[in-house]
Measured scan of single mutants.
Amino acid sequence: SEFQINEQVLASWSDSRFYPAKVTAVNKDGTYTVKFYDGVVQTVKHIHVKA
């Protein structure tokens, strides 16, 4: 599913667990740039983002 900029989502971290994050960019290659609550910004594949 498509997510929008500033949408609150759950994004997987390197430990494969999902954490609350905010979408900061929707990228043309189908990835999302997300910002976790601790301030870390990461680009993740769409399969690693869920509502």
Rank of each mutant, 00 (worst) to 15 (best):
A21M: 04
F18L: 08
W13D: 08
V34Y: 02
H46I: 11
T31L: 02
Q42I: 15
I5D: 04
W13K: 15
Q42V: 15
Y32W: 05
V9W: 04
N6R: 03
P20H: 06
P20L: 10
K45C: 12
T43R: 08
W13M: 14
A25W: 06
V34C: 03
K35Y: 09
Y37M: 12
Y37T: 09
F3E: 03
Y32E: 00
K35D: 04
V9F: 03
S14F: 09
E2V: 11
F36P: 02
T43W: 03
T24K: 05
L10N: 03
W13T: 09
T43P: 00
G39I: 03
G30L: 04
K28H: 11
S14L: 12
S1G: 12
F3G: 03
H48W: 11
V49P: 06
Q4M: 10
N27Q: 05
F18C: 09
V34E: 00
D15M: 02
S16E: 14
V41G: 03
K45A: 13
I5F: 06
L10R: 00
N6Q: 07
A51Y: 09
Q4R: 11
S16W: 07
Q8W: 15
I47W: 11
V40T: 15
Y32M: 04
T24R: 00
T43M: 08
D15Y: 05
V26T: 02
V23G: 01
D29L: 03
K45G: 09
V49S: 07
V49I: 15
V44I: 10
Y19W: 10
Y19D: 02
T33Q: 11
S16V: 07
N27G: 08
K28M: 10
Y37V: 09
Q8V: 12
T33P: 00
F3I: 05
F36A: 00
S1P: 14
H48N: 14
I5W: 05
G39L: 03
K50H: 10
A51L: 12
T43H: 08
V26L: 06
G30D: 05
Q42M: 14
P20Y: 08
T43V: 13
N6T: 02
T24I: 15
S16K: 11
